[in-house]
């Protein structure tokens, strides 16, 4: 293989890799892209809320250890916070500001409830877990409705 062909091959690889990284990490493009990202972030929040709810119910039924349940709560809170903060950093079109505000409120409720669960578990106040987890059912339903709205 000639030196020119090698150089061309290497350059093409770099260009393709750069384009791939840009595609994967770029902020949303256009209003459809923004709504799609909002729906995806909401889905992640709902997934984490439901995961924490299942951990809490399993623990309350005496079927999970406190150590594993705490790990489940920590991971749910961390992933939910990360999804919410990443989406909130995107700049919306003016007409999406009300929708964004609703997302921010729902995300705050979700991450707040997940933090309460984690704190109760860390403080060994396991008696409080069913009470806090009770909020997760409604939250999951609200998030599901909001996700449908964002995808319309």
């Amino acid at each position: 293989m000639s030196r020119v062909a090698r150089f061309a091959g290497a350059a093409l690889t770099v260009v393709i890799a750069g384009a791939a990284i840009w595609y994967v990490s770029a902020p949303p493009k256009g209003s459809d892209g923004y709504r799609e990202r909002m729906a995806d972030a909401t889905r992640t929040l709902r997934s984490q809320v439901q995961s924490a709810r299942i951990w809490a119910a399993t623990f309350a039924g005496g079927d999970a250890t406190s150590a594993a349940t705490l790990v489940g709560f920590e991971e749910a809170e961390r992933d939910a916070s990360s999804a919410a903060s990443q989406f909130e950093s995107y700049e919306p079109a003016r007409r999406y500001l009300p929708l964004r505000s609703r997302f921010v409120a729902l995300a705050a409720d979700a991450t707040g409830a997940l933090a309460d669960l984690r704190i109760a578990a860390e403080l060994d106040a396991w008696g409080r877990v069913p009470e806090v987890a009770g909020r997760l059912d409604n939250l999951a339903a609200s998030l599901e409705r909001f996700e449908r709205r964002a995808r319309r």
Partner: peptide, 21 residues
């Protein structure tokens, strides 16, 4: 429930649901 698995702990959770501690 619409849960997306992102962690190893979630792989173990269904076993706890089914068979307990």
């Amino acid at each position: 429930a619409g849960v997306r698995v992102e962690h190893l702990s979630q792989t173990a959770l269904p076993v706890a649901v089914a068979l307990g501690k």
